[in-house]
Design a protein around this nucleic acid. Structure first.
Length: 272
DNA sequence: ATGGTAGACAATCTA
């Protein structure tokens, strides 16, 4: 059984790519970020024709998260308990479409079911921006929610775009980030990510594909991809009980090639 | 050369 996570940067603009990728990789489950659409614009039919159930949380042209599965999709939760709201410039605060979860693996597979999250962590924009404080609040609330009932037998995977490069090797040039005061590498962001690792959630990819120069995202601008000036910011963090069942995991760098790619590539895990 | 990309939606906003 194979599951993956992918920030597609608009599902409508990338529908053909997603369809082709699912065909080629034969993934059973895909968590998607940045669908950039509301439900009425979501390509339900494409997933249905391919034999996937799909759940989507999208309330505007921004953000948007989904889970597609052909091995069961049960008990869908939109957002998570305690997810902070955000609103600026007097706009009514609301829970943004940045988290959706479901239980997968309940049918058509031999693996034990597990709880799966599709997460789009807020972009902090700049170190002083109010979005940075929101990002840290979001991560703290998510950590509280997920670790609340975490035990030795918990089966959960937190997947998606974390917008954090947790270690120096996860960017092409730390000096560039430090000299320009950029986000994704600041100590508060990294501490927020480490809190998940300290609570026993395991990055299933890094041990199999260590850095440096192993990335999941390359900016569209400035030839970042041809120069391999990327960032590792998309992760599959699994509880230890689930991580024990992971037989392989990788980053599909090929998906960044060719015409019309997302700026992120899929991160994949296989369960035995 | 003071820009360069991409996608939402249709003047800017987001990343």
């Amino acid at each position: 059984m194979k599951f993956a996570t992918w920030n597609v940067n608009s599902l409508r603009a990338r529908a053909d790519r997603v369809e082709d990728w699912l065909d080629e990789t034969d993934a059973d489950v895909l968590t998607i970020q940045e669908t950039k659409c509301r439900d009425e614009n979501f390509p339900w039919g494409m997933f249905e024709m391919m034999g996937y159930q799909v759940a989507h949380f999208g309330i505007s042209q921004w953000n948007g998260v989904a889970i597609a599965s052909r091995v069961g999709l049960d008990d869908v939760e939109y957002g998570f308990a305690g997810q902070p709201e955000f609103g600026k410039n007097g706009v009514d605060p609301e829970v943004e479409a940045r988290a959706i979860s479901a239980t997968v693996g309940t049918k058509n597979t031999d693996v034990e079911p597990f709880r799966l999250y599709s997460l789009y962590v807020p972009n902090g924009r700049s170190l002083e921006d109010e979005h940075m404080e929101y990002k840290l609040r979001f991560l703290d609330a998510l950590h509280n929610h997920v670790t609340e009932d975490l035990t030795d037998t918990t089966r959960v995977a937190l997947t998606g775009d974390w917008n954090i490069a947790p270690y120096d090797e996860d960017v092409w040039d730390m000096e560039f980030f430090l000299n320009n005061g950029l986000t994704h590498v600041s100590e508060p962001e990294r501490a927020a990510f480490r809190a998940f690792e300290d609570s026993g959630l395991v990055d299933v990819v890094r041990p199999r594909h260590p850095g440096p120069e192993t990335y999941t995202y390359w900016d569209y601008q400035r030839l970042r991809f041809p120069k391999n000036q990327g960032m590792r910011i998309d992760f599959i963090l699994a509880s230890q009980h689930l991580a024990n069942d992971v037989t392989d995991a990788w980053i599909d760098r090929e998906a960044r090639k060719g015409p019309g790619p997302s700026d992120h590539v899929p991160v994949v895990a296989e369960l035995g």
